[in-house]
Amino acid sequence: MKEMLALIMASVLASNFALTRFLGVETVLGQCKSTVKPLFLGLAVTATMVLSSILSWVVAEWALCPCSVLILPIFVIFVLGMTALVELFCRKVLKNTLGSGFAMIALNSAVLGVSLLNAGSGAKNYVHESFFTTVVAALAAGLGYALVLSVYTAIRNRMDDCSAPRAMRGLPLSLLTAGFISLALSCLSF
C-alpha cells in the first residue's frame, strides 16, 4: 500500500508526465482560453489513458511479447480507438462536445507514452508487473496531467493581462511558466 501511494504521488507530482517527462507538453503549452475547459480536457485524457493502457497491457502481456515491432502500431490504434470512444461518450452522455479536444487527446504523446512505459518498451526502470499497478499508474499519470493543465491555464490567463517584452510574448513566456512549475515539482521526491 505504501509503495502504491509513493507511485501515485510520484506520477502526479515528482515525475509528472507533462513537465518532467515532456510527454504531451505540446497540449499544455498550446492550451487556449476559448476551447475546452482544462479540467474537463484533463479528465478526458485520464479516461483515455486508463482505457488504452488496460487494452495495451492485456495485448502486450498475452499476445505481443515476442513481437516488439508491432507494439507501437497496435498501441497507436488503441489510443485512436479509445479517443473516439471517449469523444462519443462526451457527446452522447455528457452532451458536451470536445471539439478540437479530440485532436488534443489523439495527438497527445502522454496517452501513448503511458501505454509504452507500462509495456516496458520505454525507460528501463518503469516496468509494471501487475495489471493493478498498470491501471493505478495510468490513473495517476492522467490526474497529474489534469492538475498541470489546470494550474498552467490559470496562470496563463492571469498573465495575459500583464505586458511583456515583445520577443517574450507567446511561446517563450509559456515555456518559462511551464519551466518554473516543473522546477517546483522537481523539488519533491517520493
Partner: peptide, 23 residues
Amino acid sequence: LALVAAVANIIRPNKCMDCKKGA
C-alpha cells in the same frame, strides 16, 4: 528553448498564439 523561441520571435513575429485551432 524559451530563449531560442524568443530569438525566433524577433526574427519572425508570431502574433496570435492563442487563436490556434486544433492541435
